[in-house]
Design a binder for these strands. Structure first.
Lengths: 336, 336
DNA sequence: CTGTTAGCGCATTCAA
DNA sequence: TTGAATGCGCTAACAG
């Protein structure tokens, strides 16, 4: 059976269509008696306003778009949970988009912002290109970045550079000097900017300690477990292998453990390992890692976005989420 | 600047509004010359059809709704990935809904199916109540269940009963007779039906081996790690503790490992453990577990749903996804 | 082949 | 306080 429309309700209740609308949206005062009658009719006909009608009339979709790349990464679920925690109780819906290739990403930015199908965009884990920024600006779509900082876009910033530096300094404090860094391919067009940020922090820590940078200690790896392990085995097979490794994700850090296991390198005795994210597995594996409150960052992200949608002139405050180094048993002082 | 409408394009191109629509949708033949002109104007004006307009006119939203409960559970990301893999390249959008409480669930089923805001519904991990079925039927919203089987609703079925039975039989084959089962609270209104299904499989395996059921061996626990560990410590502290445990999720199985560690019970020597899902962590922890291809199940789920939307009279074929017992090092023959 | 028109369901005028 | 009319952007049926 066709769902009831606002006109059905109006006819049945013997009132005008505008009156029903007024009752629904409290947009203007309505006589209490007629109000009750309308309300009763709505219930009787089981009427629900059609969102598309509203959207068309209001020029608003009550939907926010979310892009969370790297959906294989466990920690992404935390980000999504944070988003849902705010969007769920709100009047907004959530549209989840996939962008797994450069082509998809281009198409997305060229179309969606202009399509009027979302009122705002939440972008995780991705430092927008100049081109993408252009589209965001031009479409005037309220946009918030989470995880990365950008001077031109409101964002919830996690200072990964400082966190990475702090992690590496932890290793240096343990007397390590041969410290490697494992990340994704920094020049991969689909890479998060994140690997780079951590790299900067890594470099800063080394520099501050007067430890020269060794290019062979920067291991850029694919993220799937097999290939990662392989890359790290190579790293650990260098003539002068590192005594400590900082990995830009817990997943990669676990691959370090895999590789060390394969090579019979005891951890932390002969090799210290620090990860990033503090995923559940990290605790289980007793991995020293950097904890970021991804849930909280997401929550602040959409809250900011909703504010921005509500009032585009909101001063785009840029929050910062603190990180914390969780020291477990995968790091130890350098054995002499 | 206001985005261009179909009328802008028509005026600019000097054609009728219907012609533009025809070009866009190939809904009727158009003279090649005018077609090119329209196409050029569309590009020139950077015109994108407004979805709400389409939706309103077509009575279709090109959006499918998805409910994936228990978003804290790592394996859920696999399901979501499967969905995205199909929805992403399609013309459909994905609306993710939260239902974390009974109230939310009720509200969802009472409103969303009728709202016309989605063309189809994909329901994970949830055996619908009679009431919910009523709403699904009444609203005539195409709906597909994934993970659970229901006689009245198209579904992608994973035979958890058989898989659980198989897992427990593995333990029995290892000569275990004191076999406990750890799950969520079976009577929790927000529980997945899943804990119950595994329970049935567990019982069947025991019965077939003539092992009497011991109520004290069924440990119903909260799912967060601390409380789970606590519950399992109690289980393992029984006067006659189990020598093997089947957990309905890898997360719980890992909590079993936690608890065993706390009590200095060596695994698998003194206690065998089997989990469920084969999350990444399971491999890492060398946990024997049941692997279900969650990605594949999701893919089949939306594919079926899209078919159903396309043609509501599609014979609601009900697929079944096989499971596989992955034997690792958390299970061993009963020590005499 | 193509321009025009009539809704789709709703919010918001403008009159009354 | 309220009903009727207008328009949001689009598709499809209708009339050339």
């Amino acid at each position: 059976m066709k769902p009831a429309t606002i006109r059905d309700v109006a006819n049945r209740a013997g009132v005008g269509i505008g009156t029903v609308s007024s009752v629904l949206n409290c947009s203007r005062p309505v006589n209490e008696a007629t109000r009750q009658k309308v309300l009763a009719t709505i219930k009787e006909l089981d009427y629900r306003p059609n969102p598309s009608g509203r959207h068309l009339s209001l020029g608003k979709t009550d939907t926010i778009g979310v892009i969370i790349p790297f959906f294989t990464v466990t920690s992404q679920i935390e980000r999504l949970r944070g988003v849902m925690a705010v969007v769920g109780p709100s009047d907004y819906d959530l549209n989840l988009f996939t962008v797994e290739t450069v082509a998809q990403r281009n198409k997305f930015f060229q179309t969606i912002p202009y399509s009027g199908q979302i009122d705002g965009l939440l972008l995780f884990y991705h430092y927008p290109t100049e081109d993408e920024l252009q589209h965001i600006r031009q479409s005037e779509l309220p946009t918030v970045l989470v995880d990365v900082a950008h001077p031109d876009v409101p964002h919830i910033f996690i200072d990964n550079v400082a966190a990475a530096r702090n992690a590496v300094e932890h290793l240096i404090a343990l007397k390590h000097r041969k410290i490697a860094y494992v990340s994704d391919y920094l020049d991969d067009p689909m890479a998060s900017n994140f690997g780079y940020q951590c790299y900067v922090g890594y470099c800063m820590a080394l520099e501050a300690a007067n430890i020269p940078l060794r290019p062979e200690y920067h291991c850029q790896s694919r993220l799937d477990r097999q290939q990662a392990r392989q890359s790290i085995v190579e790293l650990l097979s260098l003539p002068e292998p590192p005594t400590a490794i900082f990995a830009f994700s817990d997943e990669l850090a676990l691959s370090v453990l895999d590789a060390a296991c394969e090579l019979d390198i005891p951890i932390p005795n002969s090799l210290s390992v620090v990860g990033y994210n503090d995923i559940e597995l990290a605790d289980f594996a007793q991995l020293t890692t950097v904890r970021q409150n991804l849930f909280e960052a997401s929550v602040q992200g959409i809250e900011l976005l909703l504010d921005l949608i509500d009032d585009p002139d909101t001063t785009p405050i840029q929050y910062q989420i603190p990180t914390e180094l969780i020291v477990r048993h995968s790091t130890a002082p350098l054995a002499c």
